[in-house]
């Protein structure tokens, strides 16, 4: 089985305009790499039999069928969803950075793929796009039509304005009463205290939170050489920099920021993942599934 990173590397997102299709490829490629049949959960309502495959949970092994027919089967059930998930995607101006794939495009692909995966697993998923405030909000549903609406919103969105993630999180924490899962995809260019305050609010409402801190490779490595004037995508402020001199201090500063975010998230039981836009989607989906499994 080929991994999803081989089928659809992040750099190839630029070539595909149809986010719906991209999401399907990502999910199906990823799932097929993990398991032979991911479309059925193990719930209470029986669905069908399937030939036993080594590695299947023996709790679902049908011993009666084995005794009668001397064949090995496992029983599959239609899963029953009880998860309401929200994908919160940052569409501030700072997300419009990266070449060939911007952080926003990468985040959109993650949002679409996660949404598709959740809907396939009968989970209800909603979408919130934010910049200075929440610009789009789709309440959670578990239908493919809803998925297509989400994809349409994602494709229509354009990164702009400053990041106010704290304000958005507070808004969502107040709006969404029922406990659920929040998958936040952002570059976190807001005041750390505001971010943590928003997260803390979500956690206070008993929501589970997965935070994908998406950064472009150039932000992480700072590979510039020539004397340049760097212009902030959100504020427009400029600073003239000799990259060779600034690089060590810059890397230390951004490293410190990520470390402090990881530590603070960990204290709040928020799953924090730093994502390089050159990193394949497997990592992101694996993180989600890991969390989903813990949620039951």
């Amino acid at each position: 089985m080929r991994a999803i990173s081989e089928i659809l590397p992040p750099q190839s997102l630029a070539r595909f305009a149809n986010l719906d299709l991209v999401a399907r490829w990502i999910v199906e490629g990823f799932i097929s790499g993990l398991h032979a049949s991911p479309y059925h959960g193990f719930s209470v309502e029986f669905a069908e039999y399937r030939t036993y495959t080594p590695g299947d949970d023996l709790r679902h092994f049908d011993w009666k069928a084995y005794a009668k027919s001397d064949r090995t089967y496992v029983r599959l059930y239609h899963s029953e969803t009880n998860l309401r998930a929200h994908v919160v995607l940052d569409c501030s101006a700072s997300m419009d950075f990266g070449n060939p794939v911007t952080k926003f495009r990468y985040g959109s692909a993650i949002a679409a793929a996660l949404s598709y995966l959740m809907i396939q697993q009968q989970d209800a998923v909603g979408l919130a796009l934010f910049a200075e405030e929440t610009v789009r909000y789709l309440p959670p549903k578990a239908t493919l039509r809803h998925f297509r609406d989400m994809v349409a919103q994602l494709e229509a969105a354009r990164p702009a304005a400053r990041t106010r993630i704290g304000k958005t999180l507070h808004y969502l924490a107040e709006t969404v009463r029922k406990r659920g899962l929040f998958v936040i995809v952002s570059d976190l260019y807001d005041e750390p205290e505001a971010i943590l305050s928003g997260l803390r609010h979500l956690r206070f409402r008993k929501h589970e939170v997965i935070l994908f801190h998406v950064l472009d490779h150039d932000e992480l490595a700072f590979p510039y050489r020539a004397l340049s004037e760097f212009k902030d995508l959100e504020t427009g402020s400029r600073v003239q920099v000799a990259p060779a001199v600034y690089r060590p201090e810059y890397l230390k500063a951004i490293g410190d920021f990520a470390t402090s975010m990881r530590r603070d998230c960990s204290n709040m039981l928020v799953d924090y993942t730093l994502v390089d836009t050159e990193v394949p989607f497997d990592k992101v989906l694996a993180e989600y599934l890991f969390k989903r499994q813990r949620l039951g």
């Binding site: 700072s94 950075f97 260019y189 340049s228 995508l233 402020s237 920099v241 600034y246 810059y250 920021f257």
Partner: peptide, 17 residues
Amino acid sequence: KARVVPFPSVRFLQQVD
């Protein structure tokens, strides 16, 4: 005539500056 580079994390550069 330093080259202008749009960059998202200028605040870190300013911090270093």
